[in-house]
């Protein structure tokens, strides 16, 4: 991803040429094009976040987005945030101390609240962003991504802007630094470059709608390639609103009791692998079981369950863990050269 730096710097230069205040040395310029206007409108709502990190591999900086005029800043829960060391730098260069709210475990985001004494000192009112109403933009929609990549901007310097399109929406396994990430939600994949420090910044349409929060660069287990992705803002509304209305206490979500009930399908797979799991060939189907009723036979290759691909026996078992007894699943299987589908009603284990 570092090779994309050139592109990033180019756009940074474009942004740097416009607006600006404080001791920033370059002259102002009124925005002219659609992107320039959008960026000029958005920049006051984005802040630089500096945390404390003693580790080489973890950046101590990221970007945040103002979500309320009371000083709530949404950022990605990446840096080792310590309450007394964390600072937020507003677009005009003002440095503010923040209060750290508990993070949202599901999406890995965190709200920081600018301290009240710092809020009183501000000369200009804060400009919060609102979440876009229209969330389902088509693939191929132009987007701009704004963030403080590689901490190139300090104090009142302008953040970097990258341009791209929405590549796709993805719901696949993710990996970060060779470790699997437990994130079950949807991600917006873009080809707008995303680099360290850009994390926590925003993904906007060219019209200026806020549609995503940039994540760290993760690897998709589907493709083994890195993806620049953003969490759709629609998924974060609940956490943001709880934090704004109920403060620190609202950030912690009430625990939901999850009870795992094993399901019975009566299908035994030909799972002979020791380290590498083999394809999901059916070895035998128990008499009178849901699998037998569905018409599955030995030597069928199970290919998909509810449009989810089953590459190996391990995949089959993992997918089955997510179902409950009584649910009906669609099994796509291959017999000979023919691919067909059947409905299978899962039962309880007796």
């Amino acid at each position: 991803m570092i090779c994309k730096m050139g592109c990033v710097l180019l756009f940074a230069a474009v942004v740097a040429a416009q607006g600006g205040g404080g001791f920033y040395a370059f002259p102002d310029r009124t925005p002219k094009t659609a992107i320039e206007k959008t960026v000029a409108k958005l920049l006051p709502s984005l802040v630089k976040v500096h945390g404390a990190s003693g580790l080489k591999t973890i950046q101590s900086y990221s970007t945040g987005i103002l979500v309320s005029d009371k000083g709530h800043v949404l950022t990605l829960d990446l840096i080792l945030i310590q309450e007394e060391r964390t600072k937020v730098v507003l677009h005009d260069g003002t440095v503010c101390q923040v209060e750290v709210y508990p993070a949202d475990e599901t999406y890995g985001v965190r709200i920081l609240k600018i301290k009240d004494e710092d809020l009183k000192k501000l000369k200009q009112p804060l400009v919060p962003l609102t979440i876009a109403k229209e969330q389902k933009h088509r693939n191929g929609t132009f987007v701009v991504s704004i963030g403080n990549c590689f901490r190139l901007a300090e104090f009142s310097e302008k953040l970097s802007v990258t341009l791209g399109v929405i590549v796709s929406r993805m719901r696949s396994g993710l990996r970060y630094h060779l470790q699997d990430v437990d994130y079950g939600g949807e991600l917006i994949v873009t080809d707008a470059p995303n680099n360290p420090g850009h994390y926590g910044g925003g993904l906007f349409t060219v019209g200026g709608e806020w549609i995503g929060l940039n994540t760290k660069i993760v690897e998709s287990t589907e493709t083994n390639s890195q993806v620049s992705a953003a969490i759709p803002t629609g998924e974060l509304i609940g956490y943001i609103q709880r934090c704004i209305t109920r403060g620190k206490a609202g950030a912690v979500e009430p625990e939901r009791a999850v009870k795992v009930v094993p399901v019975f399908h009566g299908i035994e797979l030909f799972d002979h692998g020791r380290r590498v799991s083999p394809p999901a060939y059916v070895e035998r189907v128990a008499r009178g079981s849901p699998g037998r009723t569905a018409g599955l036979r030995p030597d069928d290759l199970i290919v998909q369950i509810d449009r989810k691909v089953v590459h190996t026996c391990k995949d089959f078992n993992l997918i089955m863990e997510k179902y409950k007894p009584g649910q009906t699943i669609t099994v796509t299987f291959k017999r000979g050269r023919k691919v067909s589908q059947t409905e299978l009603k899962l039962a309880e284990v007796k």
């Binding site: 693939n139 191929g140 590549v167 080809d191 493709t223």
Partner: peptide, 13 residues
Amino acid sequence: GRTFGAKDPSVHM
């Protein structure tokens, strides 16, 4: 591309 399983193809520019 048609890798991520969505109805719309993915697109890189």
